[in-house]
Amino acid sequence: MHDVAAAAGVSRGTVSRVINGGYVSGAARAAIEAAIAEVGYVPNTAARNLVMQRSQAVAFLVLEPPSLILEDPNIGAIMLGANAVLSSADYQLVNLVVDSARDTERITKYLSGGFVDGAVIVSARANDPITRVVTDLALPATFVGHPADLKQGIPFIGIDNVGSARAITERLAATGRKRIGMIAAAVDRDSGADRLTGFRQALGRRFKPNLVAHVPFYDYASGMEGMRQLLQREPRLDGVFAASDAVAAGALQVLRELGRSVPGDVGVVGFDDSPWAQRTDPALSTVHQPAKEIGAQAADLVLRQLGGKTPEPGGILLPTPIVWRASA
C-alpha cells in the first residue's frame, strides 16, 4: 500500500479508503486504481481476515458417503444454490467431506480453528458428532433437514417429507393399485423416516410391513436391491413408492429386466424431481423438491447470523408440488 500511495501521489490512508470501499474523490480513486495496476498490488486476504477475525468462508458439509455425493443431483443443486448466495456476499464456500471417524476428528479441529465463519450441513443424523461440535462452538449454521437432536434455536430448512410422501402415495393408490410397496431408503435420518411415515399414513389399514424394503441409501443400486426384495415378497405387486428418484430409477431397471410393464403392470413414483426423473423411461411421477432454493435459503440464514441477526424460532419448510408423469 505504501508503494501504491507513492505511485499515486496520495496518502496511505486514502489508499486504504479505496481498498476498503470508503469515499474518496473521483480523481484520487482513478489515480489509485492506475497505481494499483502499475505496481501489481493484491490485498493480503490472510492479513485482512486476521484483523477482522473473519475467514470469509462458509463450510458445506454433506454427511453422506462420497459416492452418493457424486451421484445425487439434489446435493449438487443444494450446493450450487448455497454457493450463489455466498458468492454474491463475497464469501467462499468450502466443501468438507466426512467419510470416516478420522474425517470427523479432522473436521472437528478445522471447524474449531476458525477456518470458517459458518456452515451449511446436509443429511445430519441424530447423535451425529458434527452436530454436537457445531452446537458447542455456537458456530453460525443452518441444517438442511431436521435431525431429532437438533437444539432449539439452530435454524433449519427443508420440506414436509411426511405430507409429501403421503400425498404422492395417495395419488398412486387412486390409480387403482391394490398391492403397493415402498423402497424406504435412509430411515436413519429424518427425511427417510418421515417419508416412510407418510407412506404408512396414506395406506392406513392397507399398509403391510412386509411390503416395505429397507435400503441404506438414496441411490440407484439400493433401488435395484429394494425392488428385488419387494417382488420376492409379493410377485403380484402393482405399485411402488421409491424414497428418491435415483431409487426409483433402479427399481425401473429391475422391472424392465423382468419384463414388467410400467405403468401397465406396476405403477412407480419417486421423490425429488431430480434429473433422474426425466431420464427414466417412462418419465417418473415424483415430488418436486426445490433443492437449489433450499441451498440458497440455507446460505442466506448463515449470512444473517453472521450479520448479527437472530434467526426466527422454528424452521422453514418449502412447498413440494407433485409432478405427475407417465410412470404411474
Rank of each mutant, 00 (worst) to 15 (best):
L258H: 09
G259K: 12
A249S: 11
A141V: 10
A138L: 08
A138R: 15
P311Q: 10
W324H: 03
T310M: 10
L252Y: 10
L96C: 08
G270E: 05
P290Y: 05
I107E: 02
V262P: 06
I316F: 04
V10G: 10
S327K: 05
M227K: 02
D103Q: 02
L306D: 11
V254H: 02
P216M: 08
G114R: 02
G181H: 05
E225C: 02
F143V: 03
G76P: 00
V240N: 07
P209E: 11
D194T: 02
G314D: 07
P129F: 13
A34M: 07
L252K: 09
I78C: 01
W276D: 09
G315S: 04
L137I: 03
A82K: 03
V4I: 12
V266H: 12
S123G: 05
T135L: 01
N161P: 06
M1G: 13
P235N: 09
N20Q: 07
T142L: 03
A186C: 08
V24S: 09
A5D: 08
D245P: 00
A8R: 03
P66I: 00
D190T: 13
I78Q: 10
D160N: 14
A89K: 05
A119R: 11
L111T: 04
A328H: 11
A174W: 08
G76I: 00
L196G: 01
I69N: 02
A27G: 05
A243T: 14
P275Q: 08
R205L: 14
A249L: 01
R206H: 15
K309Q: 15
E38A: 15
L303V: 00
A277S: 15
G239I: 03
V269T: 09
Y91S: 00
S327I: 01
D194R: 12
A5I: 02
A167M: 09
L196M: 11
Y220M: 08
D160I: 02
Q201F: 04
G307E: 02
K292S: 15
N210Y: 13
Q297Y: 07
L172G: 01
I130S: 01
Q305E: 10
S112V: 01
Q278I: 15
P147W: 07
A165I: 09
P65C: 06
A34D: 05
M79R: 15
E312A: 12
R279H: 11
R171T: 10
S285P: 00
I121W: 03
Q152D: 15
A184N: 12
G176N: 05
I294V: 14
Q232H: 14
V51F: 06
L61A: 05
R260A: 06
H2K: 15
S191G: 14
G22P: 00
V162L: 11
V4W: 12
P321K: 09
I183A: 05
R12I: 14
R106T: 12
G308R: 07
